[in-house]
C-alpha cells in the first residue's frame, strides 16, 4: 500500500510538470498569435539565468477603454466610504480585448473589463490597486513580462541593437504571443522592426 502511494506521489510530481508544460504547449500549437510592441531591459534571475523584462504598450489602458464593470469597481475604490474594503496591494483580474491590425499583425487594446468578452481575441491580465486610477490603469501584468534567453545575450536586447543593424541604431522590438481560449498568453518569439531610430548621443560619437 505504501509503495503504491509513493508511486502516486511520483506521478503527482510528473503530472504537475506535465500540466505546466502541456497547457502552454497546447496554446503555442493551437491558439491564434498576435504581435505586441514592447521595450526590453535586461535583469538576471537567480534560478533561470538571463531574461529580458518586457514593458508592453497594452500594459497601459486609458479610461476611455474601460468596460462598465471595471469603471464601477474603480469608482467604488475611489469612494472614501467603501474604498477601505479594497487593499492597495490586492490584484484584480482583467480581460483585455485586443484589436489586431491585419497588415502588421500588431495588437492594441480595444477595451478592458472584469469578465471575458463573448467574442474576439482577449488576454488575461492582473493589476494592483495602486496602479488603478480613474484616468488610466498602468503596469498590467499578463504573465509574459519575462523573455528568457541564453546567458550573455541580454545586452543585445537591452541595447535594442540586433546583428546586422548599425551601431547606435535602436530597433523597436515586438513579441509574438499565442493566446489561449481562456486568455492565457505564451511568448513564442520576437522580431525587430526594420524602422529604426538613431540615438543622438551615440550618433555623435
Amino acid at each position: 500500500m505504501r509503495g503504491k502511494l509513493i508511486l502516486i506521489a511520483v506521478l503527482v510530481q510528473v503530472l504537475i510538470l506535465g500540466w505546466m508544460a502541456g497547457e502552454r504547449e497546447w496554446i503555442v500549437r493551437t491558439a491564434p498569435t498576435v504581435w505586441l510592441r514592447t521595450a526590453p531591459v535586461d535583469p538576471r534571475d537567480l534560478f533561470r539565468g538571463d531574461y529580458v523584462t518586457l514593458g508592453y504598450e497594452i500594459s497601459t489602458i486609458p479610461a476611455a477603454k474601460f468596460g462598465p464593470a471595471l469603471k464601477q469597481l474603480i469608482a467604488e475604490q475611489d469612494d472614501k466610504a467603501v474604498g477601505y474594503r479594497h487593499s492597495y496591494e490586492c490584484e484584480i483580474v482583467l480581460y483585455v480585448t485586443l484589436k489586431v491590425d491585419p497588415a502588421t499583425g500588431l495588437a492594441s487594446v480595444a477595451f478592458a473589463d472584469l469578465t471575458p468578452p463573448a467574442a474576439g481575441v482577449f488576454i488575461k491580465g492582473r493589476v494592483r490597486r495602486y496602479n488603478q486610477t480613474a484616468t488610466a490603469i498602468t503596469r498590467v501584468s499578463y504573465g509574459i513580462d519575462a523573455y528568457y534567453i541564453q546567458q550573455g545575450r541580454g545586452s543585445e536586447f537591452e541595447r535594442r541593437n540586433p546583428a546586422g543593424l548599425a551601431d547606435g541604431t535602436q530597433a523597436p522590438m515586438e513579441m509574438r504571443v499565442a493566446i489561449g481560449h481562456n486568455g492565457t498568453a505564451v511568448l513564442t518569439g520576437h522580431r525587430w522592426r526594420s524602422l529604426g531610430m538613431t540615438s543622438q548621443n551615440e550618433a555623435e560619437h
Binding site: 510538470l17 505546466m20 508544460a21 502552454r24 504547449e25 503555442v28 533561470r48 539565468g49 531574461y51 492582473r126 501584468s141 504573465g143 509574459i144 513580462d145 519575462a146 523573455y147 528568457y148 505564451v186 511568448l187
Partner: peptide, 9 residues
Amino acid sequence: VAQIYHISA
C-alpha cells in the same frame, strides 16, 4: 518549464 515557456506570473 517556466523558463521554456517564458512564464513570469
